[in-house]
């Protein structure tokens, strides 16, 4: 039974680490294109960001730690870790590589202060969860791996549910104006979608409520029969692909899809506890 559980977790690890690697490579490559932001005349210049409060690095080495060369070094580490994660299972590099990606997430969030998004947050969650799962496989301790699965699936459930709950309390979302409003921007919108939504308030209201409803009902994936749960996750994957297409949220796809194997393991565990397995 324990061996079978470990096999499921190993499969979860393989899928999750592949998707984490995809995100790590994409995010690092996109930051490389933006290195000018870290220069003395850039939007993230350390000359100004060093003025913010609660900096933990000692003043004597602060400038070196936050220099453009340090950012490059961290991004190179993320790329190397991402590439090593692609080595097939069993891979002894999984634990150090996921920890390295986790540390790179911490560094980039401290260094940039502005500009982070939900994909960075979920990337950090996946790296942390994957490190725990890998440690469990190294220690051959199914409870350690299960805590890693709990971390990823728990954050995934919270992410979708909170995203839906935050929308349901918003009048702009409830009356359907959020969709055409966002689509009308050049930053996150799409000219064709904006044109289509402009004269269809009923359709916009339907899409907004569909988003709210499905996001808030995400926790039910943990209780659903496996076939229904997989079908639901496929629909959520389509949701992320459509967000990538219409809103340019390309980096969200990989870390959010990376949570799904852990969600399916959590589904199996919850249904087992309920006696529904």
């Amino acid at each position: 039974m324990v061996t079978e559980g470990m096999a499921d977790i190993a499969l979860c690890l393989v899928i999750t680490k592949t998707l984490l690697a995809a995100w790590a490579l994409l995010s690092a490559a996109e930051w490389f294109v933006n290195l000018h932001l870290f220069r003395s005349d850039g939007l993230l210049t350390w000359n100004i960001l060093r003025l913010r409060p609660r900096l933990v690095i000692p003043a004597s080495i602060r400038h070196r730690v936050h220099a453009e060369s340090a950012v490059i070094a961290v991004l190179v580490c993320r790329i190397v870790a991402g590439l090593l994660l692609l080595i097939p299972y069993p891979n002894h590099a999984d634990l150090p590589c996921s920890l390295l990606i986790l540390l790179s997430c911490f560094y980039m969030s401290r260094r940039t202060w502005f500009g982070g998004d939900g994909s960075d947050q979920m990337g950090m969650v996946i790296a942390a969860g994957l490190a725990i799962i890998s440690a469990g496989l190294v220690l051959d301790d199914i409870n350690v791996t299960a805590s890693g699965v709990l971390a990823i699936s728990g954050q995934a459930v919270l992410a979708y549910f909170v995203a839906g709950a935050a929308k349901v309390v918003s009048p702009v979302w409830r009356d359907g104006k959020a969709l055409p409003g966002v689509m009308k921007t050049r930053t996150y919108g799409h000219s064709l979608a904006a044109g289509f939504a402009a004269d269809r308030p009923g359709f916009c209201k339907f899409v907004c409520w569909l988003t709210i409803g499905t996001e808030m009902l995400f926790p039910l994936v943990l209780l659903a029969p496996p076939g229904v749960a997989i079908a639901s996750l496929c629909c959520f994957a389509l949701f992320h692909f459509s967000n990538a297409y219409f809103m340019g949220l390309n980096a969200f796809v990989w870390p959010f899809l990376a949570t799904y194997p852990a969600v399916m393991l959590a589904n199996s565990a919850v249904r087992g506890w309920m006696g529904w397995a």
Binding site: L158, A163, W173, G181
Partner: peptide, 19 residues
Amino acid sequence: GLHIIPRWTFFAPNPGVRD
């Protein structure tokens, strides 16, 4: 400080409707 605690309220309650 390290953003260990994520915020999941994407585009809500007030979505960005301006560039």
